[in-house]
Design a protein around this nucleic acid. Sequence first.
DNA 1: CTGAAAGCGCTTACAG
DNA 2: CTGAAAGCGCTTACAG
Lengths: 343, 343
Amino acid sequence: MPPRPSEPRYGSRPTMKDVAAHAGVGLKTVSRVVNAEAGVTPETERRVQASIDTLGFRRNDSARVLRKGRTASIGLVLEDLADPFYGPLNRAVEEVARAHGALLINGSSAEDPDRERELALALCARRVEGLVVIPAGDDHRYLEPEIRAGMATVFVDRPAGLIDADVVLSDSFGGARDGVAHLIAHGHSRIGFIGDHPRIHTATERLRGYREAMARAGLPVHDAWVAPGSTAPGRVAGAAEAMLAGSEPVTALFAGNNRVTVTLVRVLADRVPPVALVGFDDFELADLLRPAVTVVAQDAAALGRVATERLFDRLAGARPAPERIVLPTRLIARGSGELPPHP
Amino acid sequence: MPPRPSEPRYGSRPTMKDVAAHAGVGLKTVSRVVNAEAGVTPETERRVQASIDTLGFRRNDSARVLRKGRTASIGLVLEDLADPFYGPLNRAVEEVARAHGALLINGSSAEDPDRERELALALCARRVEGLVVIPAGDDHRYLEPEIRAGMATVFVDRPAGLIDADVVLSDSFGGARDGVAHLIAHGHSRIGFIGDHPRIHTATERLRGYREAMARAGLPVHDAWVAPGSTAPGRVAGAAEAMLAGSEPVTALFAGNNRVTVTLVRVLADRVPPVALVGFDDFELADLLRPAVTVVAQDAAALGRVATERLFDRLAGARPAPERIVLPTRLIARGSGELPPHP
DNA sequence: CTGAAAGCGCTTACAG
DNA sequence: CTGAAAGCGCTTACAG
């Protein structure tokens, strides 16, 4: 049974056709009014606008997108919407998108490569014009057809896997090196490193920075001082306890990311003698803890901003070779990293 | 000049028509394969799939949505993507959407009512099927045509303004009342309240809870003890200093939300004699501060989950009268709220 | 099992 | 200044 003409379809929403009939004008005239195009007499415009208001018309952008071939939207795939580190990044991406008149569609992969892929491809199917991806997986070849078809893609925080694409990173290697050098400068020589899983690029880089700082200072690195792995509090606490026990306990710890840092703060709280700590990533209230926590800070908002600007450069037609953009980190000394060694 | 047939349009992406031509089958057969519908011989399916892979075809969901009338997506309008309070809420909304096979589109209003409206209507134009809104403004009549047209809408954290709609809230009144009663139980009678702008519903409710607790205990409330307003650190710090000076200084403070709490922790740090503090909203590391901070915690994830489940209930056809759902808060005593008064 | 035709709600290209 | 026709890329309803 076909719907009666008086019953507009599609969730009972009026269409331009309905508005045109109601106002007694042609379809194109309604389109002109809706899109504020020139060439409509004030009187006609008034009449059309009245019909729009009466019927509660709102343009269906699905149809518009289909016809125009542009969606004016970009996608963001992040790792975890609930991780405070990504809040400012997310917001920065949105602001840049907004400045370019684009809507942002985002979602989180929950660190699951399959989910990352599923989400990224769902965004592609909706024809976002560009994609900012914080990778969970390490094989992004699934995006090749999309990129060939003109989808702009920029990776953030971690490099793309097995494809050639723009990536915007913090200087994990240099930041970790400087953070560890800071501990060495304050007299430490037995320094432990507790970081994220080695399959994560940033984790590997930070570990490399740790080794570099130790090597530069001519200090040995015992296997027992290096504990990459899960950032689960139990694993991290266990690793720390092991390093702090034994015959040659460490006198300082370097934490490979914010989650590790927070766990270590708990482990080290009120410990005698105090253990020095420098963490990668700044976090709120780090300055209020006692001792306040010395960190290697990265600028999450800048990561998002630079990546999204790069994306829109490409959308505007720029075709530079894919590039690796590295943003500097900043050491913020607050107290925990300046504690002397207690042998 | 019309494009040559060998040059597919639309950002040079192949369409089902291209796939059909390439595989030597009809359009509908491609559609069947793409959507995994029954009624295609394995051999045909193989051939079509090979063409899909060769051409790098990906279904254009804009066209699909237009034809089907369903977008399988919902929208979330929040206040600030970078505020840690909304991270878990955002994530919870996404998880429920995902469980229902829907994509989440979100954006932040940055506390600007105009921007909230603009964003919400942009999502409507993209025909999201439902909308979860954390209101910035207090007039939501602009959504009336959408809701009449079948758009499910649920408000979270703050009620809708001037329209009748579902809303899911934390018990701001009861939580604040209990938090202040906790201070009173620990001997305080001169208690200050520093909260958010009175135009924000939760701020008003929390202030009401404060007054209720004081009244129940038979305690007077001096005007100088109540300072609603901006949550800018300067304003909050100034208000606190004023309450702590003067002839009848307060011995305890109640903070109306997380931003106020954090500022007050800074203001009160190392202060002698110590000032008791209870804050609305829990925050990470509250337990590591000295003293650890006693808070009235709300369950942000539950707010998002309950709201989104309500949304999908409506999308599934449920038509209950709009309802106000209030979730309980929980007092977490950690130290700062148990400090005795120092007159 | 397979496919041609019609149509979703817009915009484009064109004619009056 | 105004509008009828065609078409964006799919799915629906139908026929073979």
